[in-house]
């Protein structure tokens, strides 16, 4: 959401300006340092989602010490196996099954329905962890389109028109995925995005435009540490003429919104000299992470 981005730009701007004056005239110096933080105990992390018409999926893991080297193998092994995970929609309760031994749990009986409240309960090593989420009613986008940015010839953003429902308290999250294939380069022939990706500032609420009908636009997000060519050259953050883009526009509840908003703030504030620590607001009682419901709508945009 661009207005949200602009509010954050305030912070970014400060850094940018400071470095314009100081950094470009005199190169600021950067070096690796060792930070000694006392070893801390690990906590249980829950990451679980339930979408309308889909089975819930929950991953359990332990936190890792902040500093150090983590191998991806280590990351997979870090899943918590053997926990008892249940999801209830108020009338029926399902115990989730574990997929292999990676700490990933899923249901085969229960699917998400709009307007319902889902409670998650996890029993791990004698600890009881719980969380609640709601799948809100669906809000559809009126229309979606591609628009070239400024005076560029083929790069632009995806725009949409939204009519926000009259009642205050709608929260949204935006995903997009390009399903066309690279025509050239080392990834030629591969699908551009293998999964839905969120741009920065992917969540917004209707605090400032409750009941209004308006246009908004999003830039293209990328995966962290992406080494794809178009995430590292001038095409970064842009969609391009010729792209076929699926927009996944989700309604989410307040706690789910708070989690992503604080998570994105934390990502943005790393390295900001004026920022204060940005803790991530979790809705998990007894642990960290998120238990979130999504009610998505899908639109296809062909960038012309």
């Amino acid at each position: 959401m661009i207005p949200e981005n602009l509010i954050r730009m305030k912070k970014v701007l400060i850094v940018v300006t400071a470095f314009i004056i100081t950094g470009t005239i005199f190169s600021s110096c950067e070096k690796d340092v060792t930070v000694d933080i006392p070893q801390s105990d690990s906590k249980v992390v829950v990451e679980g989602y339930i979408e309308t018409g889909q089975y819930p999926v929950v991953r359990l893991s332990y936190t890792l010490p902040f500093f150090g080297t983590i191998s991806t193998l280590n990351f997979l092994q870090n899943g918590i196996s053997g926990a008892v995970v249940t999801v209830s929609d108020g009338t029926s309760t399902d115990t989730l099954q574990e997929f292999l031994n990676y700490g990933i749990y899923f249901s085969t009986h229960l699917t998400g329905t709009a307007g319902r409240i889902y409670s998650l309960h996890v029993l791990v090593n004698g600890n009881s962890i719980s969380a609640v989420t709601t799948i809100p009613q669906q809000v559809k986008l009126d229309s979606t389109w591609f628009k070239v940015d400024g005076s560029r010839d083929s790069l632009g953003f995806i725009w949409a028109h939204l009519t926000d429902p009259d009642s205050l308290g709608n929260n949204y999250r935006w995903f997009a995925r390009r399903i066309n294939h690279y025509q050239y380069g080392e990834d030629a022939g591969k699908i551009k995005d293998s999964i839905f990706i969120t741009p920065r500032g992917s969540v917004f609420d209707d605090k400032f435009f409750n009941g209004k009908s308006f246009d908004f636009g999003y830039n293209r997000g990328s995966m962290p540490n992406s080494n794809k060519a178009d995430d590292n050259n001038d095409e970064k953050i842009f969609f391009k003429r010729g792209d076929t883009v699926i927009v996944k526009f989700c309604s989410i509840d307040r706690a789910h919104f708070e989690f992503w908003r604080s998570e994105e703030t934390q990502v943005n504030s790393n390295g900001n000299p004026f920022g204060s620590p940005a803790p991530v607001i979790s809705n998990i009682n007894g642990g960290l992470g998120i238990w979130g419901g999504y009610n998505p709508t899908y639109d296809t945009v062909i960038a012309r």
């Binding site: 933080i37 006392p38 992390v45 893991s61 332990y62 010490p65 902040f66 620590p277």
Partner: peptide
């Protein structure tokens, strides 16, 4: 204030 732990 520095973080003590992380998760993915």
């Amino acid at each position: 204030t520095f973080p003590e732990r992380l998760y993915f």
